[in-house]
């Protein structure tokens, strides 16, 4: 564990807290992609199945349970409690392609062919593109609430900090080598490129995030 990784994890937790705040404070999930949240639940469940067979640390185990349960709770809020506010007509990204992309790469790039390894690899590739329905939704509506833009920013920051953590670990830990994690993580961070730019620009003007449509 190093400071970059810790800050990355905290940024991930903050993003989820912001999303919950947004939904509960406004009693609405307008502007939030149900498809992205669903993909994140699939990511967490497929990756953290190892919870029952591998013990790394109490920290890791607690985080795994926290990620699965909070994302399930968000889906519950979106799917049942505030369903009437869900903006279905703008959430039109075809996630079949993303699942097919992740599944294809999961069969080609795992460390070895065991169920847990293939699922872990699948989750890495799926996570790398899971934000696309959300970004697409933002792109078509052009604007979003402040909390929503903070949420997406914190989520992007998380993987960017992980990338710094990988560079740090590679230079300090002999034998540390995770090519699939690195490539998927860099792809994930790169997808936020445009968003980061407009987010920082809107912060500097002290205005709401506005994207060109």
């Amino acid at each position: 564990m190093n400071l970059f990784r810790l800050c990355g994890d905290l940024s991930h937790v903050v993003s989820i807290v912001l999303l919950l705040l947004k939904i509960r404070a406004t009693r609405s999930c307008v502007g939030i992609s149900l498809k992205t949240q669903f993909l994140y639940l699939v990511v967490f469940v497929t990756r953290y199945l190892d919870l029952f067979v591998t013990f790394i640390s109490l920290y890791n185990s607690v985080m795994k349970v926290a990620f699965i349960s909070t994302t399930a709770y968000i889906l519950y809020l979106m799917f049942f409690k505030f369903k009437h506010t869900y903006d279905k007509d703008h959430d039109t990204f075809r996630i079949q392609f993303l699942i097919a992309f992740a599944a294809a790469l999961a069969f080609v790039t795992p460390h070895r062919y065991s169920l847990l390894e293939v699922l872990w690899t699948f989750s890495l590739w799926l996570e790398s593109v899971a934000i696309l329905p959300q970004l697409y939704m933002l792109q078509t509506t052009g604007e979003c609430e402040n909390l929503t833009s903070h949420y997406i920013f914190a989520l992007g920051l998380y993987r960017a900090l992980y990338a710094v953590n990988w560079v740090y670990r590679y230079s300090t830990e002999p034998g540390y080598w995770q090519p699939v994690t690195w490539i998927a993580g860099i792809l994930q961070t790169a997808l936020y490129g445009d968003f980061f730019y407009y987010y920082v620009a809107s912060r500097r003007r002290g205005k709401r995030l506005k994207l060109p449509t």
Binding site: I56, K64, H111, Y162, G175, Y176, P179, T181
Partner: peptide
């Protein structure tokens, strides 16, 4: 080179 295991990141 094979990847280092087990997965200790989240």
């Amino acid at each position: 080179r094979t990847a280092s295991r087990p997965h200790d990141e989240l």
